[in-house]
């Protein structure tokens, strides 16, 4: 099967659902990556990935990760970052993208055990406060009370450590 956006062979098959209407999309690897990054429903030409003006594209070209030298424009066309430091280098550009994909920009999951105790605690507090918010929203007050106690004891611990 041919890619819907270029002459190559389609390897990815997407079923898009919008307003209850389903639409089939058949894309080659390259177009699919662009599709996933831009999530643009309109076909785009390869020379101009996101329908941007020449000056906007130059802007993207100037954004470079100092560590691996990937430009933001390369990321836009490949859909892959070059190194862990890219997340810092392109932070301002990535935040709206992450919001779009995940609806959030703060990790609240597993934390490596080898991380410094301090940052683990801070992180644990973020997680517990989020859970507390959710528990209150769901009106699970018993759970909320438990979480509040956990938060308080963790805050005390941090305060004690600060004084020492």
């Amino acid at each position: 099967m041919k890619c819907d956006r270029c002459p190559k062979v389609a390897t990815l098959h997407v079923t898009e659902i919008e307003k209850g209407q389903t639409q089939e999309l058949h894309l080659c690897e390259e177009c699919a990556q662009k599709y996933m990054v831009t999530a643009s429903p309109e076909p785009v030409s390869s020379a101009n990935p996101a329908g941007m003006s020449e000056s906007e594209l130059e802007e993207l070209e100037r954004l470079v990760c100092p560590h691996c030298k990937l430009t933001f424009r390369e990321f836009r066309s490949q859909g892959r970052l070059g190194c862990p430091q890219c997340y810092t280098a392109f932070r301002d550009e990535l935040v709206p993208l992450l919001e779009n994909i995940h609806g959030d920009t703060q990790h609240v999951g597993k934390f490596p055990r080898r991380a410094p105790v301090d940052s683990r605690k801070r992180y644990e507090l973020v997680r517990l406060r989020n859970e507390l918010q959710a528990a209150v929203a769901e009106e699970s007050y018993e759970q909320a009370a438990k979480l509040r106690d956990q938060i308080q004891s963790l805050e005390h611990e941090s305060a004690d450590a600060g004084e020492a």
Partner: peptide, 21 residues
Amino acid sequence: VTYAFSEELGYLTACPTNVGT
């Protein structure tokens, strides 16, 4: 091993669709 990890974004992955957990 030491994984690529940030406090803000969690486990760092090549594609931002997998970042976090």
